[in-house]
Amino acid sequence: MERSKISVRNLELSYGAARALKNVSMEIRGCAVTALIGPSGCGKSTFLKCINRMNDFVEGVRIRGSVFLDGEDIYDRRVDTTLLRKKVGMVFQQPNPFPMSIYDNIAYGPRLHGIRGRQELDGIVEEALKGAAIFEETKDRLKKSALGLSGGQQQRLCIARALAVRPEVLLMDEPTSALDPVSTRKVEELIRNLKKKYTVVIVTHNMQQAARVCDDAAFFLAGEMVESGPGDVLFSRPKDRRTRDYVAGRFG
C-alpha cells in the first residue's frame, strides 16, 4: 500500500468541556479527493481545520494526538504554522475574496511569502487563475475589484488564491454550499482536475456531490470517525450500520 499523504493518529479536540473530536485516526491518500461526510455538528469541519491548524485561533481549544503530513507531526512544537499553511491551502464555505483587485487577491499569498518581482508575480497569477479555470473570464479585468465577480467566480478565485502559494494539500470546507447548481458543477469539475496535482480533502453536506467527486470518503458522527475507505464502497456497501442509515438518508 502506498504511503499516506496525511496520517491522523488518535486526534482529540475539545472546547472547554465539550469534546468535538473523539480519538479520530485515519489515512488520507496523496493526489486523490477525500470527502468527509456526516450530519451538521459531527466534527467534520473541525477535523478539516486540524489539518492546517486553523483551530489554533479558537479560544479555549485543546488538541491532543498527532497529524502527520509527509511523515512530520504538524502538532510538533517546532512547526512553523506559516510554512504549514503554505503547504496546506484552504477554501472556505463562503467565498471570501479580499476587497482588492483580482490580481492583488491572487498575488496576496505569494507577496506574504516574500515574492516581489513583477514578472514573477504576473506568471504566478496567470498560472493560478488557469489552474482554477477562471483565467478566461478574468484576464481582461485583473485590475478590477474581485467583489464584482459572481459568487461562483469568487469561489473559483478563492481556489486560485489558494493555489498561488503552490500548496500540496487543498482543504475545502463545503465549497459549493453557497453556490448555484451551474457554479457548483464548475467547481466540482475543477476539484476532479485538481487531484492530478494536489491532495484534496473536502467537507460536504451533499452526498451526491461526495459521490461525484471523491475517491475516498469518511463518515463522521458525533465527533467520531465511524468509517472510511474508497468512496464507492462507503456509499454502496458500508460496513457500519450508522453509515448505512446515513447514506440511505434515514437521518441527518
Binding site: M54, F92, F98, P99, Y108, H113, R161
Partner: peptide, 27 residues
C-alpha cells in the same frame, strides 16, 4: 471587516501582523 478576510489571510500562511496590515486594514 468580514471575518472571512482574516481567515483567508491566516490560511494562506499570513502571520497575525501580516494579516492586520495587509488584509484587515486595507479592507
Amino acid at each position: 471587516v468580514q471575518p472571512g478576510v482574516r481567515a483567508a489571510s491566516l490560511a494562506l500562511g499570513g502571520s497575525r501582523i501580516q494579516t492586520i496590515f495587509c488584509a484587515v486594514l486595507p479592507a
